[in-house]
Design a protein around this nucleic acid. Structure first.
Lengths: 345, 345
DNA sequence: GTGAAAGCGCTAACAT
DNA sequence: ATGTTAGCGCTTTCAC
């Protein structure tokens, strides 16, 4: 037999559909007795309200979108996991959207999902799509940024303290005696990347470094390799390299392995994000932990609060502390001119 | 102003809603003239049909579920990417469901999504949930298995030729002179894992190996480490190790690195799946490529075909060839008793 | 070939 | 505190 509807329940309980609806939605104004009666009928029939019918009339679907840059970057699966876990608790379904940081993909996803009744968006990719998103969504309460900070302060976000994390990491390298440190940056439009770069610059300026080595680039692991290759070919290459994220750091490590350079003895390497792979005995990559599980969980909570808030409610801003995880990849004190001789061959 | 409805279009075009509906759904029985008229009105108003209303009346939602074991295993993000890419072309939305191979999670996801109008399921996790899934879905056309083969041949699937892949891989190691080869297996209920084990057994039997080394286990990277640790502690450890998938192989590599054993000089290691990470210069892991992008794409196509097929249509079965990717991790010919001396200390 | 009308399962006024 | 009823936007008979 078909799924029972609210009408079946009403009939079974001997009440009207509105009463059943009230019970289901935990509305007040239902006598305890009646409530019990209805609940029993629901139980017996195995009734479950239809989200579709609900969505049609209420305009809400319990559908959330998670926008990510690249699910191939292990940071994002970890984020997705925590978002999904938290969302499930409220009966929300999460659709993972791989935007490849292309605005057109953001538009496609959001337009389609909006028609499906999309309730809110967790924006964790770094494309230049902020205005587009806000326009499509028409209501800033429906979005929360994470991983990256939005340009407009009237939008909610939960991010790591990227700058402070980068400062701490840079100081860690400086403490080992490194003075010539290369920074493999992300694209200039990625605010989280820029904040990390800022932190690096600040820490380098503190010790009076005239011109820190900076390689502009994208977020792919290849960029890391290219930057390092270029540095090694130039006079006086860096004794340490910081990558703007762990994926790029992996690319750096790979390039160095290809060139038979030892980490950290010949050159130190550090990343940012704190992905699980960085802890692997094969990498032992020093990194800055973003506590991605916290990021995801809090993003969902913010969104939930906002979706229940009245229009025009104040945005919520959270900045989470990061944690430096020093590992073997930066464990050797710098040896002056160690690299210059090695690179020659 | 609000989104235009089908009524607005009908009014603008001077026809009835049913005519508009027919045009939108590409139904016959509409005069070319009328069709053009309606299409112009749609264009002008920017009308897009509401998937929700559609779902309510038709019972179809263009929602697909992808069941995976663990999104932390890089094989699955790659699969998700290809599934998503193919599904998008037909306007399907994919919900990624992380089941952790727990039946209760499968049930939760499917029950909830069914209420949301779920159209079909791509089952790529390996839990013992086959019957549950088929019962919940009530129609075998709505599911396609991938990555693993279902017990019932009346259900569609697209899988790799796991057995042949394992045979080829084992022979590759045998050709290097290895005779004592350890196989880190997956859980016994995982059919894809069992097929790979079968292939290994078969190839070992071919050369008359009395009792191949086999470690039963789960799918976590830890299992790989534990198995190897145990083997190394025993008399006459293996000279080569095959892991049932790349994630476990990574765990094996990590354990060996911890113990200062060189791969492949001291011990050879191979995986299965062909994840991108395996190609990294840091691992250079020999593996068997499953062509995960093909797997995902074909799964979606099968599902699409089935959803359009009449009830009771014959299931579709596809078995894709695998490809051996020999890399450095198995590149050294075996040195007799090499390991026995090393392990002592 | 086209239109009118009855729902799909539910929520939310508005009555009582 | 509970019931009645009008939709939400669309598909789908069934007439014409």
């Amino acid at each position: 037999m078909r799924q029972p509807t609210i009408i079946d329940v009403a009939r079974a309980a001997g009440v009207s559909v509105s009463t059943v609806s009230r019970v289901v939605r935990d509305h007040a104004d239902v006598r305890a007795e009646t409530r019990t009666l209805v609940q029993e009928a629901i139980e017996e029939l195995g009734y479950r309200p239809s989200p579709i019918a609900r969505a049609l009339v209420s305009g809400q679907s319990r559908l959330l979108a998670l926008l990510v840059s690249d699910i191939g970057n292990p940071f994002y699966p970890q984020l997705a996991k925590s978002v999904e876990h938290e969302a499930k608790r409220d009966g929300y379904t999460v659709v993972l959207c791989n935007t490849a940081d292309r605005t057109v993909e953001t538009r496609r996803y959001i337009e389609r999902l909006l028609r499906q009744g999309l309730d809110g968006v967790i924006h964790a990719s770094v494309a230049r799509d902020e205005n587009l998103l806000l326009t499509l969504l028409a209501d800033p309460r429906r979005v929360v940024f994470t991983n990256r900070r939005p340009a407009s302060e009237s939008v909610s976000y939960v991010v790591s303290d990227n700058r402070a994390g980068a400062v701490e990491l840079t100081r860690h390298l400086l403490a080992q005696g490194h003075r010539r440190i290369g920074f493999v940056a992300g694209p200039g439009y990625a605010r989280n990347a820029v904040e990390r770069l800022d932190g690096f610059r600040y820490a380098m300026a503190e010790i009076g470094s005239a011109e820190p080595l900076i390689a502009e680039g994208g977020f792919s692991a290849q960029h890391g390799g290219q930057a390092v290759t270029a540095w090694l070919a130039a006079p006086s290459p860096p004794t340490a390299v910081i990558a703007v994220n762990d994926s790029i750091a992996l690319g750096v490590l790979e390039t160095l392995a290809d060139r038979r350079l030892r980490v950290p003895e010949d050159i130190a390497v550090a990343g940012f994000d704190g992905v699980q792979l960085a802890a692997s005995p094969l990498l032992q990559l020093t990194t800055v932990d973003q506590h991605v599980d916290q990021l995801g969980r809090r993003a969902v909570r913010i969104l939930r609060r906002q979706l229940a808030a009245p229009p025009g409610a104040a945005p919520i801003h959270e900045v989470l502390p990061t944690q430096l995880l020093p590992r073997r990849s930066t464990a050797a004190p710098v040896r002056p001119d160690s690299l210059a001789s090695l690179v020659k061959d």
